[in-house]
Design a protein around this nucleic acid. Sequence first.
DNA 1: ACCGGTAACTCTCCAACGGGAAGTACGCAC
DNA 2: GTGCGTACTTCCCGTTGGAGAGTTACCGGT
Lengths: 146, 146
Amino acid sequence: MPMVTAAQQRAQAKLEYDAFLASCPSRQLLERISDKWVSLILAALGGDGPHPGKDRADRPRSMRYSELSRRLAGVSQKMLTQTLRTLERDGLLTRTVTPTVPVTVTYELTDLGGSLHDLMRGVKVWAETHMDEVLANREKYDARTT
Amino acid sequence: MPMVTAAQQRAQAKLEYDAFLASCPSRQLLERISDKWVSLILAALGGDGPHPGKDRADRPRSMRYSELSRRLAGVSQKMLTQTLRTLERDGLLTRTVTPTVPVTVTYELTDLGGSLHDLMRGVKVWAETHMDEVLANREKYDARTT
DNA sequence: ACCGGTAACTCTCCAACGGGAAGTACGCAC
DNA sequence: GTGCGTACTTCCCGTTGGAGAGTTACCGGT
């Protein structure tokens, strides 16, 4: 009989979540969401368009597996499935199977996933808007070191 | 009715970065910053304490190499050096060598790096605050699938 | 009855990336 | 000379991710 239940362990750890500690669960969560495919999946399901300033249609969408794999150009099926599974397990999105033929599987952000998406959208927009500056910095750096 | 040629569309698309396209530079930038070590390095140099609500001392810090490697528990020297180099190349932080003995190397966020840190801090805080919820979701998921 | 088509995976192989440990360069103190 | 401390750098090897073929399950056509 275990003396300490999982719930008790959580209650204990709750006092001190610190992502800088390698053993902290929040560190693993940070590693999980700091993933290129995670950020793109969130952006896709969050309804981010390519050009953030223009379309205001950034409400959560429900997307099919095949739709996602087309949207995230370059993702392998393995990684897409794997990443979606872990996000589902963590409660960031829901997976719905509709028994049509062939079977239809749709994914949708939960409220929890949506709250993370609100943050991650900013990061994606940052990358797109500061691209020029970063490219200029790289040129300067490469010129300096050659 | 304005006529838009294919050439004009291409020229237009060239100006706009879209992280969903595999070939877009901003996609590579998003992949670079969606990295566990990048987010932790930014948090460390941005002055994030373990408990975000408590200490207000979240102004940019200058940190030594050894200080960073102690702070980011579990990082290998190789990855720390490599990650710092690319962040320096992209202009997110500066590397300063002081010819003391032994040599002292300090790293500090640039304004550009600081602007990204403002966004990433939210993500780290999100991970720490929603940890309980995610752990509960995992238990439910595992119970459902076993 | 059989074949083909489609969606969503799943499996298998292999190349690339990341971690660990050991080695390097520098200058000074002894 | 030998040793030491900082900040790397190099080598080896285990793990991860990508490419692409294979799988399942169903149905509609012939």
